[in-house]
Structures are given as C-alpha cells and as structure tokens.
Simulated scan of single mutants.
Amino acid sequence: MSGSIEYGNLMHRAMRRLISDVLEDVSENGLPGDHHFFITYETTHPDVGMPDWLKARYPEQIMIVIQHWFEDLIVDENGFQITLNFGDAPVPLYVPFDALQTFVDPSVEFGLRFESQDSDEDEHSSPIHIVDDLDDEEPSDSDADAPAAQAGESASGGKGKPAEEKAAAAPAKRDAEVVSLDSFRK
C-alpha cells in the first residue's frame, strides 16, 4: 500500500465520471433548456480522433461547443465521440476523458479545469479547479473561428444565433474566480 491517499487522482476520476454521466444523459435525452458546453481538450493526446487538417489548425488544444447542432454523441468509459459542424461540414471527433482541460456549462455557471499532472506546482496541489463565474471561460474574439455549432440547425430543429449576435446580446462579463481545492484544506 502506498504511503498516502492520492486525493488528486481520485478527484480526477470522479470529475471525469461526472462529465461522462452528463454527456450520457445528453446523448439519450438531448440538451435540456439553455444548457450548452464549452469543452477544451489537448489535441496532442494519442487517443484523440480528429482529421489531420483540423489537428494542423489546432496543434495543441481545441475548444468545442456542444449546443445547437451535434449528432452521433456516444460515450464510453474512456471518452466520447461526437460529430460537429466545422465550416458547414460534419466532422466526427473522439475525445478521451484524459485529454480534457476544461468543461464549462455557462448556462448554470458550472465549470471544471483540469490541471496537468506534469505541472511544476507542489505535488500536493489539486489537479482540479472549480470555476465559480464562468463568463471568462467563453470563447474570446480571438476564438471567433473556433469550431463548434455556433450557428445552424439545432437538434431540436431550431436555428442557432451566429456568434456575433450572441456576443452582442451577452451581459457584461465579470472576471472569473477560480477556487482551488487547496483553500479548503486544513
């Protein structure tokens, strides 16, 4: 038996299981209400499945948006596959849970940020941060060409608003507050 309990690894598994459960529910029932997800993941992970042209465009990480149009969402124990619209062309992706960097649902101000296990931080620091105010996690203007179903036919048959309309209608942004789990340790 090891000399300590690896809380960080246990929390990683629990939070990835939470994301898996949420995506499984969306796969079966669709997105409820205003829920939508911004998911950032490492494109360098060996199990990521994406076309070469897309990997060349996003060589280190990519943010996808699951909102208006997506199909073929299938979740397994190691990750999920999904087809998203990139430039009016459906593109299948496979995202391993181990490649996740952030998972954000701005409709309810919920988010998780997974810190790299290889970071230079103290070995006892938490690899997970719970984000309190997620406005800062939404794509910035520099992400205007970020792939995702920002516009187009939604799963429910409705039309999505273009990203520019959403930005104009969005409330003023506040700075995000990241809460480290270390702050709860005694």
Rank of each mutant, 00 (worst) to 15 (best):
M1T: 15
M1R: 12
S2T: 14
S4W: 12
E6V: 10
G8R: 00
N9Q: 10
M11D: 11
D21A: 12
V22D: 06
D25V: 04
S27K: 03
N29E: 11
G30R: 08
G30V: 08
G30E: 06
L31M: 09
P32A: 08
P32W: 09
P32E: 09
G33S: 13
H36G: 04
H36F: 14
H36K: 04
F38Y: 14
F38D: 00
F38Q: 02
T40P: 02
E42Q: 09
T44L: 07
T44A: 13
H45Y: 07
P46K: 14
G49K: 09
M50P: 02
M50A: 15
M50D: 01
M50L: 15
P51K: 05
D52S: 15
L54G: 03
I62M: 12
I64S: 00
I66D: 02
H68A: 07
W69A: 13
E71G: 06
D72F: 04
L73D: 04
V75C: 07
F80Y: 15
I82H: 00
F86P: 01
A89Y: 05
P90K: 11
P90F: 09
V91N: 04
L93M: 13
L93E: 03
P96T: 10
P96Y: 02
D98L: 10
Q101E: 14
F103W: 12
F103Q: 00
F103Y: 14
E109T: 08
F114C: 02
Q117A: 15
Q117M: 07
D122L: 11
E123W: 05
H124N: 07
I128K: 02
H129S: 10
H129M: 05
D133K: 06
L134F: 03
L134V: 15
L134N: 08
D136A: 14
D136P: 01
P139R: 03
S140P: 00
S142R: 12
S142V: 09
A146Q: 06
P147K: 01
Q150W: 09
A151N: 04
E153F: 06
S154Y: 01
S156C: 03
S156D: 13
G157D: 07
G158W: 06
G160F: 01
G160K: 00
G160C: 02
K161N: 04
P162W: 00
P162G: 05
A163N: 00
A163K: 12
E165Q: 13
K166F: 05
K166C: 04
A168M: 08
A168G: 03
A172T: 12
R174Y: 11
R174S: 09
V178N: 12
S180Y: 10
F184C: 07
F184L: 15
R185K: 15
K186G: 10
